[in-house]
Design a protein around this nucleic acid. Structure first.
Lengths: 152, 152
DNA sequence: AATCAATCGTCACAAATGTAACAAAATTGT
DNA sequence: ACAATTTTGTTACATTTGTGACGATTGATT
């Protein structure tokens, strides 16, 4: 029997469909951490992401945050405005390029970052414990590979 | 030197923070498939998910779809309405429980599922090829583990 | 130098989403 | 048998998000 078998082997399998499975896993994990920044600090996910990035990597522009955090530019723009209103973030002009602003955390922004970062690390360690330490490294490695591969 | 070292080892590390890394990977992968159901079929993610579930598993109720697809009930409700308007989906009353409706794909719904499912599988295979076949199984396994662990 | 295209961040508007309330039906407990 | 509670799916409302356009600035082309 040559080609054109009765059973086509290109049938769709949802169980192994990565966009679905990854989204499912990601949402499950994200949701369970969400209550901390949402209910305890009244923050949105975007705000927490921007705070985490500035806390982790120091001063950056909005575009850089967007690229690194995989956040839409309007999400960054709004999160920055909101964090600025809380006085957790401040803007400084860039001498080299007057279109952009250098964003950085204020003193109380750093404090908030330390508090939330600590909770985040606690959460992650707990997850790592239940999952197995090595699994975390595996996931991180796979996430790296996925991002590399998708960007053709 | 006993306790209280100068360098605290509970510092937050974004690189290994699973909610972030998983979301990042998930978004990267999802976005690149999104254009197919969005631009070629004018569908939302929820609609594609509902179509995929009914196509894959056959007739189900809205609640069952929501549970299986990790979709909010209002998302399911709206996606069902929209797919029904396209005549890709039909509802039938359940004799045992008159609150629910048995949802299933129409003939053209099945056709659409086959077309889109084929594209989806194609996309996934392509990804698997670049990533290494075994990696996909790894990811699926880890996704299972994550979902189990998060649900306490 | 002058024009053209590209980038940055913001805003108005439209679309998608979540919350909370609801009617209808089923389930539980007495 | 009945009342109280729970479940299912839809809707109104408010919030969040993405799209597209914009002014300002920069970089590239000539």
């Amino acid at each position: 029997m040559a080609k054109s078998d009765t059973s086509s082997n290109d049938e769709f399998d949802l169980e192994t469909f990565l966009p679905f499975r990854l989204h499912q896993a990601s949402e499950a994990v994200s949701q369970s951490f969400r209550s901390i920044y949402k209910h305890e600090y009244g923050m949105t996910r975007s705000e927490w992401r921007v705070l985490a990035h500035l806390g982790q990597y120091g001063a950056m522009t909005a575009t850089e945050i967007g690229r690194s955090a995989s956040l839409h530019k309007t999400k960054v723009s709004r999160a920055v405005f909101s964090l600025e209103t809380r006085r957790w973030l401040s803007r400084a002009p860039d001498q080299r390029d007057r279109r952009v602003q250098i964003l950085s955390l204020t003193k109380s922004g750093h404090q908030a970052y330390r508090r939330l970062g600590s909770r985040a690390q606690q959460y992650n360690d707990q997850l790592a414990k239940k999952l197995g330490k090595d699994k975390v490294a595996e996931i991180v490695h796979l996430a790296d590979a996925l991002q590399r591969v998708v960007k053709d």
